[in-house]
């Protein structure tokens, strides 16, 4: 049904069309430079995509992909639960915040990859190490966003709920959590990006697991087509996963995305 409201929603197509145009032009340039052999080491787009298809046909892609994504999903879920629970506690209790703030801020600022060797010492050559890396990468971002979201939730709405007789617990769940929702979800989206990075960087360090191991093997062979093929797979994976979280965000929090 085409109501005036739904027609207005078509407007954001403008920048979206530009974005698509930019990407198409970039891909065309890539193909052109590669196909004309303008840069000796730079393969064309169709060669890279062909390699992706080849790898998939040979079944070389599926196993590392499944390995990587399994770790990713487990690590991400752990991060979501830990991040939301601890972040909320930090927002609600001044003392929990005092106790953890320094460490959380340090983890936000520190290059998380530094801690991979330490996790490797602790957990050895196992997917447990990789999951721990993902949790390290993702949970802190989710935690900080949740803390800021809950702490910054509208106190006017909280007052309103209390004035109509809500107790502190009811006001917290009916109003505070709900109005913190969009920002918590934007933390979840950031966290997903971080989780993919943690997954890949962790694998790169350990070098026997997943997509990164494949990537590394091509470096040894100076196979730039192979390297870019893996890059394409990882980029698509990262974009798809972020889009899924973004989609959930839009479904749950449409009200916050419209101008008020």
């Amino acid at each position: 049904m085409l109501t005036p409201g739904s027609r207005r929603r078509l407007l954001p197509r403008g920048p979206l069309a530009l974005q698509a145009l930019g990407l198409v032009v970039g891909l065309a340039l890539w193909e052109l430079i590669g196909a004309l052999h303008l840069i000796s080491w730079f393969p064309s787009l169709h060669a890279v995509l062909g390699r992706v298809g080849e790898l998939a046909a040979q079944g070389k892609l599926q196993e590392p992909l499944v390995q990587s994504v399994t770790n990713l999903v487990v690590g991400y879920l752990v991060s979501v639960v830990a991040g939301i629970v601890i972040g909320t506690l930090m927002a609600v209790s001044k003392y929990v915040n005092f106790a953890l703030r320094v460490y959380v801020d340090a983890l936000m600022a520190a290059p998380s990859i530094m801690l991979v060797p330490v996790l490797y010492v602790l957990f050895g050559l196992s997917s447990f190490t990789l999951i721990a890396v993902i949790v390290l990468y993702a949970s802190v971002f989710i935690m900080v966003n949740t803390r800021n979201a809950v702490a910054g939730a509208s106190s006017a709405l909280h007052d309103m709920a209390r004035s109509f007789g809500a107790g502190p617990v009811a006001a917290f769940f009916w109003v505070t959590v709900r109005s913190a929702g969009p920002e918590i979800l934007s933390g979840l989206r950031l966290g997903m990006g971080r989780a993919v990075k943690g997954m890949f960087n962790g694998e790169l360090f350990i070098a026997v697991f997943g997509l990164a191991a494949l990537d590394k093997s091509y470096e040894g062979a100076f196979d730039t087509t192979g390297i870019l093929a893996v890059a394409v797979v990882v980029i698509v994976l990262a974009v798809v996963l972020s889009t899924i979280v973004e989609f959930a965000n839009r479904r749950l929090n449409g009200w916050a995305l419209s101008p008020s």
Partner: peptide, 27 residues
């Protein structure tokens, strides 16, 4: 007692009906 707030204090995610019913729901 019931309060009418300066900046309306409406739940941005709820319809008019649900906003009006919110006080009753809490009671």
């Amino acid at each position: 007692r019931a309060v009418v707030f300066q900046d309306f204090a409406l739940l941005p995610w709820a319809s008019s009906l649900d906003n009006v019913a919110f006080g009753l729901k809490l009671q």
